[in-house]
Amino acid sequence: MKKARQLNKGLTVGVGIFVLFLLLGLFAKWLTPHDPLMINLEHRLNPPSMDYWFGTDHLGRCIFSRILYGIQTTVSSAIFIMAFTLLISLPIGLTAGYWRGRTDHFFMRIVDGTLALPDVIVTIAIVGILGPGFVNMLVAIVLVRWANYVRFIRSLVLKVGNEDFILSARMSGNSHIRIIKRYILPQIMTPTLVFVALDLGRIVLLMAGLSFLGLGVQPPTPEWGVMLYDATSYFQIAPHIMIFPGLAIMFFVLSCQLMSERLKKLA
Rank of each mutant, 00 (worst) to 15 (best):
L22T: 04
S168R: 15
V142R: 02
L200W: 01
I179R: 07
A96T: 10
D119N: 15
Q236V: 13
F107W: 11
V13K: 02
I129G: 10
S76K: 02
K29C: 08
L130W: 06
I153T: 02
F21Q: 07
V253I: 06
M189P: 02
M137A: 13
S65T: 01
T232L: 14
G60L: 01
P33N: 00
M82R: 03
V111P: 08
N46G: 09
I39K: 07
I184G: 11
T114L: 08
R151F: 04
W99S: 14
P33R: 00
A28C: 02
N46M: 15
S211L: 00
V122M: 15
F84S: 08
V253D: 05
N148M: 12
A78Y: 03
S168F: 12
G131F: 00
S175Y: 01
A125V: 05
V122Q: 13
K264E: 14
R100N: 13
V139C: 07
K181D: 12
P118S: 15
A83E: 06
I110G: 12
F134M: 09
L117D: 13
I17G: 01
P91I: 00
L247Q: 12
F21L: 01
Q72D: 01
H105R: 15
A28M: 09
L26R: 10
V226N: 13
G246L: 02
A116T: 10
I88W: 06
F80I: 14
S76Y: 09
W53L: 00
V196G: 11
V135T: 12
E261N: 09
